[in-house]
């Protein structure tokens, strides 16, 4: 079965061209732009070396807020979203009537767009008519009512709660798939050996889920770096820039303030952080598949 050496290239070509035009060339050009000072309109761009990067790290206070918010978002996702996802999966991992109904309910928010979730939750957080404040008032806790999205202290957490509602379904489904691939014999053997349920969980479930954990950690971290829609839709980075994240701040610097160089530098910071997360993951999964 001889195939001419150029034949595979013709099959790859359409995808390769689209990929080069839309992702590879533009991102490299953005890297170049990050070393220039440019307002996007002027004919000449001024080469400034790494000044855009040093500006971000030393002078741009909002950049530091955005970076901190991304890190907080990652920490929150790793603990709350993954924790709840595992809990939901464990609750669903047994023979129950209506199991698939419950699974559908918990997973459904994940298929909605960030913008839809943002609009729904903006209304839930409405200062006077929103669900949360009205309920707090009704149960006699009116001192706890709060303009959740308008206060810089609570805004990020409020948006994150909406993101938890939206995001729990993904780790849940992945954990559920992982749990169902654990052979039942393991647990039966453990019972014969006198293991308590908690010991079975600690010494069978958790270790045998390790591959699922790797997948879940990687996707959760990457999603946390990319977070944009839900924040833009709920607070647009405000109040007082308190909910900016790297991707939204990149949008503002580039398309609102016309600091193309600075915006490009932010997007490459994003690329680098994403690579730091993904490369070990790819390395790990490749090593696995060669074993």
């Amino acid at each position: 079965m001889k195939i001419k050496y150029w034949k595979p290239w013709t099959f790859v070509l359409p995808a390769l061209v689209a990929y080069l035009i839309v992702i590879v060339a533009p991102s490299l050009y953005t890297l170049r732009l990050s070393f220039f000072s440019w307002n996007g309109i002027a004919a000449d761009k001024k080469f400034v070396g790494i000044k855009n990067y040093t500006y971000l790290l030393t002078e741009d206070a909002v950049f530091r807020v955005a970076l901190r918010n991304n890190i907080l978002w990652m920490a929150g996702s790793l603990t709350v979203i993954i924790g709840l996802g595992l809990m939901f999966a464990l609750l669903l991992n047994r023979r129950l009537k209506g199991r698939s109904v419950f699974r559908s309910i918990f997973y459904f928010p994940y298929v909605l767009s960030g913008i839809i979730v943002a609009l729904m939750w903006t209304w839930l957080y409405h200062p006077t008519k929103g669900f949360f404040n009205v309920i707090l008032q009704q149960i006699g806790l009116s001192q706890l009512t709060h303009p959740w999205l308008a206060d810089p202290k609570t805004a990020l957490a409020a948006v994150f709660v909406a993101a938890v509602w939206q995001g729990v379904g993904l780790p849940m489904v992945l954990f559920l798939a992982g749990l169902q691939s654990i052979p039942r014999d393991c647990y039966e053997a453990a019972i014969i050996d006198g293991a308590k349920p908690r010991q079975s969980f600690r010494y069978i479930t958790i270790p045998l889920l390790s591959e699922t954990f790797v997948v879940v950690f990687a996707t959760t971290l990457v999603n946390a770096m990319k977070v944009y829609d839900i924040i833009y839709g709920m607070t647009a980075g405000g109040p007082a820039q308190s909910t900016q994240v790297l991707s939204s701040w990149m949008y503002y610097q580039t398309f609102k303030f016309n600091n193309i160089g600075v915006g490009s530098a932010i997007s490459w910071v994003l690329v680098l952080i994403t690579m730091i997360i993904i490369i070990p993951y790819v390395y790990y999964t490749n090593k696995k598949s060669h074993l």
């Binding site: 995808a15 839309v22 953005t30 770096m225 990319k226 990149m250 398309f255």
Partner: peptide
């Protein structure tokens, strides 16, 4: 090699392409 090259695309956030596009 080509597959690895395509995989790199998974690491590039949209933001890094917007201005040139």
């Amino acid at each position: 090699a080509l597959f690895a090259f395509f995989l790199i695309g998974m690491m590039i956030p949209f933001q890094a392409t917007l201005v040139p596009l």
